[in-house]
Design a binder for these strands. Structure first.
Length: 949
RNA sequence: GGGGGAGUGGCGGAAUUGGCAGACGCGCAUGACUUAGGAUCAUGUCUCGUAAGAGGUGAGGGUUCGAGUCCCUCCUUCCCCA
């Protein structure tokens, strides 16, 4: 080796990042002469530190965007910040930093961290949702919705979080707790702002024109929860009418009682004086229950009879009206018909309160008796006890696909008892938040109680800055007189709306603001939109399946119908693009990455001696074993061998699986892994090898399972450290290589060494230069073949988001080329060509090292502006291949044959092999099957002959 | 309870329409070079077997010349919905 420089990523990477920045290499401009590609990756919340998860999400997306660019597409790959939200406000309350200052400082920091990725983000298009120039248009969109009856203010039972001091959308409540802090959420009637989410429910169920993962489609379909059935009108004995929705009108004859939600307005009217006290007490009780508690299956049924009766329209039966908390006012009409014979929850309710059960759907071979049935029958069967419908077959399907349901609906409509109806689980989108750090809602309330929207020229309504957050609870906007007080269009005093918008409103259209973040005339420049829209590839996590990814689809459809895209559509058409169907959906293709989780960590293996007190041991001495001793001990125990520590009353030996303050839980190896509680008092002696001096109980490590990274668990992997140690290219390549991108997995940097070696070897190979001489033409041909095979493999892998196999193919290529280069078989122009193409193939994945080596080879700047090598099947083709000889599908021998060998020749060659002769042993095979080889030179592509004995 | 994924070496993970299971790496082993090796190079590395060979993708069955891949039953696990 000469004194050639070693690969030092640190210097190279910052050098090229600066150069690319100066040259505007990633500026993306409208150019109708070239095909466009809008690649988008979900924007981060500016929490202050870039996480390894951001790298995992963004750098493979960047590699793919770069690849598209090299393939000749004009690529837009923007980045920005979803900058409104509660953490900023919490920081303000706790530390006295204004949310804006906190947020902008974090953004500044994260911009720097994002730049170290070496991604091709076009920073000229950065959009930040908390910037007034952005939320001006968020407000403008709100106005559009309001003025077109897509936004309304209404009273509804909403999710109120006391901990967050705000209401939350249904999507943000998980198991009755808020998704952020996991604190309980209660149901409250409040006046709030909503968007008419259901209006596009049916259209959102259609995924025909977009390529989104099945999983996301299923989740969204579930979430929308379309159900077909009928709305049926019942009357009380007093004559008041009320509607119920049912998906099973074929069971109407089996209705033996009605159940109203405790919040239903009819409750007051039907309750008899005798039942008044019981009903009121029950209403009070149910208000304390969460929705999950109320509707949980298997829960003990509760309810109270109102004393009132309803009349069943189909048979005139008088049936009692009950109230019960398993009926929600927010679902359907807040009232249900109860068919205990056909619905398990109704069945349990009826049994508990001694109500009648009338079977109405009965399978052919059964005969139900309402008094003895043990479970409800919800499946298929023939209608019974149902008047003229007796004998009609109910096939168990939903809606019109069920002949019984279909016939009954027609009959209900003909007789005016009810009508066909479609119901949705989806509720309108609650966008009000009683918080400061969000986009204001541009509405004012006049003195005489009228509502006015703020005129366009006064937008944006800006968040006030003179707010003291410290120690405050509740909505700070309500305390700001400078914000609160305004005037109406006649100049009279008026009050501003103090609710702000859900941040999902901001992120529903950020992909549009990227198009022209500084545009003043509209939310986006139609010239840009006409060229770039829609988003071609969108990448992000699955956690937003029923939130962001559904909201943004709704938003897109809503603004399409409001004409927001009209000008862009015209321009599209003028430039020869057919806007038809291009603007119905915001993102054409969606792919999800998995999540990088924290690494598993073993707890210390300790020897505890002390005294027993009650059920637990109180330690006198805790000694952690050196890791190698601990491993030996655990191996012995796992294999059932005896360990060098016999079981003793006053000794516990094992791994710490949990630690709470000074209380340890130890899996005791002397007691077959039984969990033992150990208290460690101040006085106990604690010895930890490698940590001299007196130790404390806090230094003992407990077992940590694979889980999300979080600061409090101490398992966060910091990308800055990794970049410092290995360089951005290595981190990028490793994240792509070490995981299945769609799956993610526990962090583990064992494999990173492989990527380090790969890049070092590429560096050495290129900087070594070509040896003198002509080289070997055969080797050159071999290199060319491998190169073209790699072009195909890498291209296909990137196309399919299979980043790990792309890197694997590049490593294989290196393995092929390196010995040839070193032995001097690959020399001169053949060498140079091989190096050039290899660097081009690596460029999307490792942009810095390839740029540097490209320059060192004296090639014109920039490698990222070069064309992707064109795959040539002829050059990739091998002349000879291996014919696999099989016995009953198992390989037994191999023979070299020309590619494209015919069936007869292949069979002849196969039967002539030693392997074939041995198994045939002069006998005749039952059958001989030829499997032709496939093109491409990939593994498994070889021709095969299967000899069946 | 319903719906949908997933289960492959010591580890991360590969395997178009069914067609050589374990690509590419990590780790490990042996050897070489070295003052040294946690550098580099070479070779090996699914299991059993000295070998010829046989077996092998959560378990069991089936279809097929041929099954990680398709079908049935079951187990484990993750996600979504209730």
């Amino acid at each position: 080796m000469d004194d050639r420089e070693k690969y030092t990523p640190g210097a190279i990477e910052s050098k090229w990042q600066e150069r690319w920045q100066e040259d505007g290499l990633y500026r993306s401009k409208v150019d109708w002469s070239r095909p466009k590609h809008y690649a988008l990756t979900m924007l981060p919340y500016p929490s202050g530190d870039l996480h390894i998860g951001h790298w995992f999400a963004m750098t493979p997306s960047d590699a793919r965007a770069r690849w598209m660019r090299m393939r000749g597409y004009n690529v837009l790959f923007p980045m920005g910040f979803d900058a409104f939200g509660l953490p900023a406000e919490n920081a303000a309350v706790q530390r006295g930093v204004h949310p804006a200052r906190w947020t902008w400082a974090n953004i500044e920091r994260m911009r720097g961290q994002l730049r170290t990725m070496g991604a091709m983000f076009d920073w000229e298009r950065e959009a930040v949702s908390c910037d007034p120039s952005y939320y001006r248009w968020t407000e403008w969109f709100f106005k559009q919705f309001f003025e077109n009856d897509l936004a309304y203010r209404g009273e509804a039972l909403v999710n109120w979080s006391d901990a967050l001091q705000t209401v939350l959308a249904n999507e943000q409540v998980i198991d009755g707790k808020d998704e952020r802090l996991g604190q309980p959420v209660v149901q409250k009637m409040m006046t709030q702002w909503f968007f008419r989410y259901r209006r596009y429910a049916d259209e959102m169920l259609n995924f025909e024109n977009i390529d989104w993962p099945e999983k996301i489609q299923a989740m969204q379909t579930n979430w929308i929860g379309r159900s077909e059935g009928a709305r049926v009108t019942f009357h009380t004995e007093q004559g008041t009418s009320f509607d119920i929705f049912t998906t099973r009108p074929d069971t109407l004859w089996g209705v033996t009682f009605m159940v109203l939600s405790p919040e239903h307005p009819l409750v007051q009217k039907v309750t008899t004086p005798a039942q008044q006290a019981a009903v009121e007490a029950y209403i009070e009780y149910s208000a304390t229950q969460t929705e999950i508690e109320r509707t949980a299956e298997g829960k003990d049924k509760t309810g109270v009879f109102t004393g009132g009766y309803a009349v069943n329209p189909v048979n005139g039966a008088h049936i009692p009206i009950w109230i019960a908390d398993y009926v929600m006012i927010t679902y359907g009409t807040g009232a249900i018909m109860a068919v205990p014979a056909g619905d398990q929850r109704d069945f349990e309710f009826a049994r508990k309160f001694g109500l009648e059960i009338v079977p109405v759907i009965q399978p052919e071979d059964e005969s139900f008796d309402g008094s003895t049935m043990e479970v409800a029958h919800a499946g298929a069967g023939y209608m019974v006890n149902s008047g003229q419908f007796d004998g009609t077959y109910s096939n168990g399907e939903k809606g019109r696909k069920n002949p019984a349901i279909s016939e009954v609906i027609d009959w209900l409509e003909a007789n005016g008892y009810g009508k066909e109806e479609v119901n949705y689980r989806l509720r309108d989108w609650l966008i009000s938040r009683q918080r400061y750090w969000g986009s204001p809602i541009p509405v004012i309330y006049t003195e005489d109680g009228q509502m006015e929207v703020v005129p366009d020229q006064q937008l944006p309504v800006v968040l006030p800055e003179d707010i003291d957050f410290q120690g405050m609870t509740g909505n700070p906007l309500g305390r700001s007189s400078s914000f609160l007080n305004t005037t109406d269009h006649k100049g009279r005093p008026a009050r501003r709306e103090t609710d702000t918008m859900d941040t999902f409103m901001c992120s529903s259209w950020y992909h549009l603001r990227y198009l022209s973040p500084r545009y003043q005339e509209a939310p986006f420049d139609p010239e840009e939109a006409a060229y770039w829209l829609p988003v071609d590839v969108y990448t992000g996590g699955t956690e937003h399946a029923t939130m962001h990814l559904l909201y943004t689809r709704w938003f897109n459809k809503a603004i399409r119908d409001l004409g927001v895209f009209d000008e862009a559509a015209q321009l599209m058409a003028q430039n020869g693009r057919n806007p038809e169907m291009l603007l119905d959906e915001p993102m054409l293709l969606l792919r999800n990455q998995g999540q990088v989780l924290g690494a598993e960590r073993n707890g210390d293996v300790v020897v505890v001696t002390g005294g027993r007190e009650g059920g637990k041991m109180v330690a006198r001495r805790v000694e952690a074993l050196p890791p190698e001793d601990a491993r030996t001990l655990e191996r012995l125990a796992a294999s059932g061998e005896s360990i060098p520590y016999p079981r003793e009353q006053n000794r516990i030996v094992g791994e710490i699986v949990k630690r709470t303050e000074n209380l340890l839980t130890i899996a005791d190896l002397t007691r077959s892994g039984e969990l033992q509680p150990v208290e460690v008092p101040e006085s106990a002696q604690i010895v930890i090898p490698g940590i001299p001096g007196p130790n404390t109980v806090n230094q003992l490590r407990h077992h940590l399972e694979i889980q999300r990274m979080s600061k409090s668990k101490g398992n966060v992997v910091n990308p800055d450290d990794l970049v410092g140690a290995y360089g951005a290219d290595t981190v990028r390549a490793y994240l792509m290589f070490g995981f299945d991108w769609g799956k993610g997995g526990p962090w583990n940097d064992d494999n990173i060494q492989g990527v380090v070696r790969w890049l070092n070897e590429v560096w050495d190979m290129v900087t070594a230069g070509s040896v003198e001489g002509a080289g070997d033409p055969e080797a050159a041909r071999h290199a060319e073949r491998k190169l073209h095979q790699a072009i195909k493999k890498v291209s296909d892998s990137l196309e399919n988001f299979s980043f790990n196999t792309a890197v694997a193919a590049l490593m294989s290529l290196k393995n092929e080329l390196r010995p040839l280069a070193r032995e001097g078989k690959l020399a001169g122009e053949a060498w140079a060509e091989a190096m050039r193409d290899m660097l081009l193939l690596m460029a999307p994945i490792t942009p810095h090292i390839t740029e540097e080596l490209w320059a060192l080879m004296g090639l014109p700047y920039s490698i990222h502006q070069q064309a992707w090598p064109v795959y040539d099947a002829d050059k990739a083709a091998e002349s000879m291949t291996t014919l696999v000889v099989m016995k009953n599908g198992k390989p037994i021998d191999w023979v070299a044959v020309p590619v494209g060998i015919g069936e007869a020749d292949a069979k002849e060659a196969a039967l002539a092999t030693d392997g074939a002769k041995r198994i045939l042993n002069d006998g005749a095979p039952k059958r001989v099957i030829f499997i032709a080889g496939r093109a491409g030179g990939a593994a498994g592509a070889e021709p095969k002959v299967n000899i069946v004995l």
